Computed example of a mutant assay.
Amino acid sequence: MRHDPVQLSAHRCLTRAAVDRALSLDVDFVEFDVERCGDGSLVVFHDSVVELAGEDVPLASLTVEELRAVVPDLMTYDEVLDALAGRRKAHLDLKFVGSCAEATALAVERLGGDNLIVTTLDDASVREVRDWAEAHGLPDLLVGLSLGRKVTGFPVWRQLRVRASEVWPHLRYRQSRANLVVAHHWLARAGLAGFARRRRMPLLVWTIDTPGSLRHWLRPGRAWLVTTNRPQEALAIRGRRTGRIRA
């Protein structure tokens, strides 16, 4: 069987400089995290808190202008969508809960449903976006439930429960209606790659940075999409595989 080359996503493009670097490369997707401020503004930011005067302050208590005063190179959601429109596909990693369909609708309006994927750690948010997509004639919009979350600081019983739900995610995927398997690389190797194949669902593996792992996951057929902090190296490895896809 002949497989298409694995697609590549430049991981965690949180500033205009990072987005511009990704746009200068031949990556397929640009990945960025989306958070919500207290005034409802959507921003490109990884964490739900920011350090202010030596303390962690929730973004939910700040306006976008107050956050920009602390993070001068902050990008708004509108700004990153403008930067990508007509140039690259977007990988939205939604870090907030609630109104995820609204954020998705804005991206669809600016980029088109064929030019983005949506991922989140929250099962209910996946279901919300999937329901919205189907109601608006976009049943093929890829929405993934991310597996492999950090459990540091959780009680032991909760750590075990989370990991069990990730190693055996059948119920979570059925209830959330995710149509994209999103797995940390060690979970993908531990069985989620097979889970995706058996269900004929595309597999997104994150985050692949070592040369050995890049060579493994960029072999055609291993995954649909790989996210990496080393897109230039990944592109070189993928390029060397071009034309060597065996039947």
Rank of each mutant, 00 (worst) to 15 (best):
A107L: 04
D82R: 14
F45S: 08
C100V: 14
C37T: 13
A53M: 09
D47E: 14
V71P: 05
G98Y: 08
S99F: 10
R87N: 12
E65M: 10
E31S: 05
P58F: 06
S99W: 09
R36S: 01
A53G: 02
V57D: 04
R87G: 10
V80N: 05
R68P: 02
D39L: 01
V34I: 13
R110C: 01
A83W: 00
A107H: 06
V34D: 00
P72L: 05
T104I: 11
A107K: 08
D73C: 08
L81H: 11
C37K: 03
V50I: 12
A60K: 13
S61H: 13
R36F: 00
A101V: 01
Y77M: 12
L81C: 12
A107F: 01
E79L: 04
V57E: 09
G98S: 06
D78H: 13
S99D: 15
L62C: 01
D73R: 10
V34S: 01
V50F: 03
R87T: 05
L81V: 11
C37N: 06
V43Q: 08
D78P: 06
R110N: 02
D47F: 02
M75H: 04
E66H: 10
V70F: 10
L84K: 07
E102A: 15
L94C: 13
F32E: 02
A85M: 08
H91S: 09
L67M: 07
G54M: 09
L94G: 04
E66A: 14
L52W: 09
L81N: 12
V108E: 04
F45W: 11
